[in-house]
Design a protein around this nucleic acid. Structure first.
Length: 943
RNA sequence: GCGGGUAUGGCGGAAUUGGCAGACGCGCUAGACUUAGGAUCUAGUGCCGUAAGGCUUGCAGGUUCAACUCCUGUUACCCGCACCA
């Protein structure tokens, strides 16, 4: 057992007995609210990762109090949810009892760390006094039409027998158990979170979240702007509406695709002549898990809807309609217009199903110029399979290496032109046409003609059949100026630099959709535009004029699936009555308590275990008094954590979820720490929930959180993840026993950048224990002087500044390092003063609160530290008057000189030049200039 | 594919506005004190070299008297999102 255990117990008891850390709800001091995500009290107990973030926030809170703030730093328990239920099922105890036991363990562990938590505000989300208000707030959503029940295809985990939100099933696997998720149609309570998509984006401007958290949220919300376009279907009266972000490519639409779940199919099944094939495909798609379906790089599949024909609203062309699982029903309208020339997925699909591909955007290469002459031309690539080489022409200094190029004559096709040019320039006559690629809009200057050109160039690929040749037909200026050469792909990629030729080559070898910007072609009203943004705007304008489309914004964010078919959650406080429908439980009847039962395992049918408790289910309608049934679904465990930070402001109020005074006094949560894994889910739910409460006038701020930070994970020794199976989990209790809580805290703060993950090292922890031992031992050198030692004054002031700034910036590692440097200096002294020692202890107290209080008391240095003020520094005493600075010769350090801060530039120059090693390096050389940066460096530049 | 991030000794990591790269700690080496040491203290410790000196912040360039830091390109790894139309 650590020799510090008794000291730690002593001070923990003192803080508790004296209520030192109890926050006041009315105070003349400025307020500050720190919160670290409350833990899920699992059976495994506290993890060293918890210790890292708890200690960091504790250090901030302790320092803030010493700076004169009324600090709220509470703690509670997020104890509903599947793990507690699973644990209870496995061990045959009631989840209530399991949770109680786990909370006790956690609380003792947390207490042994000596955190400055206000335990008077503690609660668990599973307390009826708390979940009463979770239910009450749900009823607010219900009252305002924000909650609705819908039959939905939901993500279903067959292992947990539970519906999951999109957020809980990302990647197509169950967040809890890792089993792959199926689609199942179920009636679920939903919250209209998608209504808040825009507000959840703009609200981020009022927060001080880390950039990575903001981007993660914006990404998740997935805003995109585009247009909805109405396509007529030839055979039926109903239109097919699609969503597109690229209305500028409408002229290139050559087919449409609808999702397998699209209602059109069932509605018009008698019009679809191959309905059996279509239904077979639908069935197949349904059985695929979301994960399989969203695997990219898999082959496109689909079936054409025979008997239904789409009509392009712009060109009036008839186009086929397909169903394919690459179109999702839950995004946009579940139907797309396909532009194979400019969308990779559509391109792939068109290739597979042999659908025409019409380019409407030409890639632009070269620089546009005034007074250009227009012409059409070709670039021909000839491939010889035998040698695996391509035919090129080396123009030497007249233009480098190129493929065969040429101008298309009047009444000539691109193909004829290419064949002609190949023969004329190289003589090869037996070639076979393979493919051509999209035209490129190229700008260049022809030196031989002294003229700027804008060309529309088509690329064509040929295969050489044999090496038979005819005579070349060359213009006068071509003779003797070029060599025909066969080159490999690698050589070509190195040697051909012409933008047009190399792009053509790439496009021919690897045909893909062109998704970039360019010049509009084949596009009626848009022809000639060269900017995507303009084209889109122009097209939307046109669509709106014609009444065939409108501008539209879409979000990936879906409504929140709020039902869980589980026992261990807040019961949804609604009752179904045959005459009144869904009715809210009366406020005075809240909370709707979870019944005490013996069996809380999920049912095979996927219904909540609550459904089998008829005495609980059967009730009367709060509205008409007739027989009615309770909702048996419970809430997800994100519910309780969506507003818990408000409850701490007034934790034991039994009239309201928190009083308006308390909500106004504490205002925003100033500083919130939590894992990166909650950047999208918990944090979005909490913001959504709070924005809703704000909109109905129940909380004073639209955004609940000011600053959000995330800590890096602690990995096991060697940098692998800590896990039970690897047996490398470090138990904080053991560490406290062997090294003491202060050493553990100090080590976790010193271990590295707070935001980065880092590997555990017990030797490192031992180093911090040694540091603390040395702090204790240095007490023997303390004399009775109450002023700083003269020789330490500068360093002490520097250290105060450094530690103050570092803790505020959460750079705990360098704060500890600064204190180590100060201690090293103390050890070099014969004796130190009480003031020296006390300021050290004050600075170290936020990180190691027990030992610092103990030593402060033992040596009678001053007031108890937790009630003392944070030390201040004197800027005048920070700057040294004597300094060592480096002298460089040509940027390399050759000597150091000591200067006085009052020294003139000339004095410094002379000192620098006089240094012996500098003399050695400048001897016999001419000095170009001498750069003197005051108090920093001298650089002598030689010729 | 898109978005975000990271890269510095044997290891964790420092380095304000561009100004002595490697602070501080771990580990390691030698020594002291010890019956003993997984305690403590002293000295040393980026790499090559006996030394003078040279080299060194993922890689390749650039700007500058001066670059871990700024610019261009590139590689590797990590995280988030992903057939999102």
């Amino acid at each position: 057992m650590s020799n510090y255990t008794n000291i730690e117990k002593k001070w923990q008891k003192y803080w508790e007995d004296n209520g030192v850390f109890v926050a006041e709800n009315a105070s003349s001091k400025p307020k500050y609210y720190y919160l670290v995500e409350f833990p899920y009290p699992s059976g495994a107990g506290l993890h060293v990762g918890h210790v890292r973030s708890y200690t960091a926030l504790d250090a901030l809170a302790r320092k803030k109090r010493m700076n004169g703030y009324n600090v709220l730093f509470p703690m509670g328990w997020d104890a509903f949810g599947a793990p507690a239920e699973q644990y209870a099922i496995k061990n045959h105890i009631h989840p209530k009892d399991a949770v109680k036991k786990n909370i006790e363990t956690f609380k003792n562990q947390i207490k042994s760390l000596g955190l400055s938590i206000d335990w008077t505000r503690e609660f668990s989300t599973t307390d009826p006094e708390y979940y009463k208000w979770t239910q009450w707030q749900f009823l607010k959503f219900f009252e305002h039409g924000m909650a609705y029940k819908a039959k939905k295809n939901i993500n279903w985990c067959p292992n947990c027998k539970m519906g999951l939100s999109n957020e809980d099933s990302s990647g197509g696997v169950c967040e809890r158990c890792g089993h792959s998720v199926e689609q199942r149609e179920k009636e679920q309570w939903m919250l209209r979170m998608s209504d808040y998509a825009e507000d959840l984006i703009t609200g981020l401007d009022d927060t001080n979240f880390q950039e990575r958290i903001k981007t993660a949220q914006i990404n998740w919300i997935g805003k995109s702007t585009g247009a909805e376009v109405t396509f007529k279907i030839k055979e039926i009266a109903e239109d097919l509406v699609v969503y597109t972000t690229r209305p500028d490519t409408l002229y290139g639409v050559t087919f449409m695709v609808i999702s397998p779940e699209h209602p059109l199919i069932e509605k018009y099944q008698d019009k679809i002549s191959n309905i059996n094939d279509v239904n077979a495909y639908k069935e197949k798609a349904k059985n695929k898990t979301e994960f399989e379906r969203t695997q990219i790089n898999k082959d496109k599949t689909g079936v054409k809807l025979e008997g239904l024909t789409g009509i392009n609203p712009i060109t009036k062309e008839e186009i086929p309609i397909y169903i394919s699982d690459y179109v999702m029903m839950n995004y946009g309208t579940g139907a797309i217009m396909a532009v194979p020339a400019h969308d990779e997925r559509d391109f792939e699909f068109a290739k597979k199903f042999n659908i025409p591909i019409i380019p409407v955007i030409e890639q632009i290469t070269g620089q546009k110029h005034d007074n250009e002459k227009q012409k059409r031309s070709i670039v021909a690539v000839v491939y010889d399979e035998e040698s695996n080489k391509y035919l090129t022409i080396n123009w030497k200094n007249l233009g480098g290496r190129l493929f065969i190029g040429g101008t298309i004559k009047e009444n000539e096709s691109a193909l004829d032109c290419a064949i002609r040019e190949i023969q004329e320039e190289t003589g090869y006559k037996n070639i076979e046409y393979v493919d051509s690629c999209f035209p490129i809009n190229h700008h260049y200057f022809a030196y031989n003609k002294n003229q700027y050109f804008e060309i529309e160039s088509t690329g064509l690929l040929f295969k050489l059949i044999n090496h038979e040749k005819t005579d070349q037909i060359l213009d006068d200026d071509e003779i003797d100026n070029f060599i025909v050469e066969w080159k490999t792909k690698d050589e070509i990629e190195k040697e051909i630099t012409d933008e047009l030729h190399i792009n053509t080559f790439k496009n021919l070898l690897n045909p893909t959709a062109y998704t970039g910007d360019g010049k509009m072609i084949n596009s009626g009203i848009l022809n000639g535009l060269t900017n995507k943004k303009d084209s889109i705007a122009r097209m939307i304008e046109y669509l709106e004029e014609q009444g065939i489309g409108k501008k539209k914004t879409n979000y990936k964010l879906q409504d929140w699936v709020f039902s869980r078919q589980r026992f261990w959650g807040e019961p949804i406080p609604l009752v179904y009555c045959d005459s009144c429908g869904w009715v809210a439980v009366k406020e005075e009847d809240l909370p709707v308590l979870l019944p005490d039962v013996t069996n809380y395992e999920p049912t095979e049918t996927g219904e909540s275990p609550l459904a089998s408790i008829s005495s609980w289910v059967n009730t009367t309608c709060p509205h008409c008094g007739k027989k009615a049934k309770r909702e048996t679904d419970t809430m997800p465990n994100w519910a309780g954590s969506s507003w818990y930070f408000l409850r701490y402001m007034d934790a034991h109020n039994d009239k309201e979820f928190a009083s308006q005074e308390a909500l106004k006094y504490w205002g925003k949560l100033d500083f919130y720490n939590g894992g990166m894994e909650h950047a999208t889910r918990h944090l979005l739910y909490a913001r959504f929930w709070n924005q809703f409460l704000y909109n109905i006038g129940l909380v004073p701020n639209k955004e609940p959180i000011e600053t959000r930070v995330s800590h890096g994970m602690i990995l096991g020794e060697g940098g692998v993840k800590m896990s039970k199976s690897l047996g490398n989990v470090v138990n904080p209790d053991d560490m406290i026993k062997s090294y003491g809580a202060d050493a553990l805290r100090c080590y976790e703060m010193f271990i590295g950048d707070y935001e980065k993950e880092v590997a555990w090292s017990e030797q490192g922890l031992n180093g911090c224990k040694r540091f603390i031992d040395r702090i204790v031992r240095i007490g023997e050198k303390v004399n009775n002087d109450r002023n700083y030692s003269k020789s330490l004054e500068t360093l002490i002031n520097q250290t105060i500044k450094k530690v103050t700034e570092d803790i505020d910036a959460m750079k705990f590692n360098t704060a500890v390092s600064a204190l180590m440097i100060l201690l090293n200096e103390f050890e070099r002294q014969e004796e130190i003063t009480k003031a020296d020692y006390r300021v050290f202890l004050l600075l170290f107290n936020p990180i190691a609160p027990h030992i610092t209080e103990e030593l402060n008391e033992k040596y009678e240095l001053g007031d108890i530290i937790c009630k003392s003020s944070w030390p201040t520094y004197d800027l005048n005493k920070i700057e040294e008057t004597e300094k060592e600075i480096a002298v460089q010769v040509n940027g390399k350090v050759r000597a150091t000189i000591s200067i006085h801060t009052d020294d003139s530039e000339d004095t410094i120059k002379n000192k620098a030049l006089a240094a012996e090693n500098v003399q050695n390096h400048i001897a016999g050389k001419e000095i170009l200039k001498i750069i003197v940066i005051k108090n920093k460096i001298v650089n002598i530049v030689l010729k």
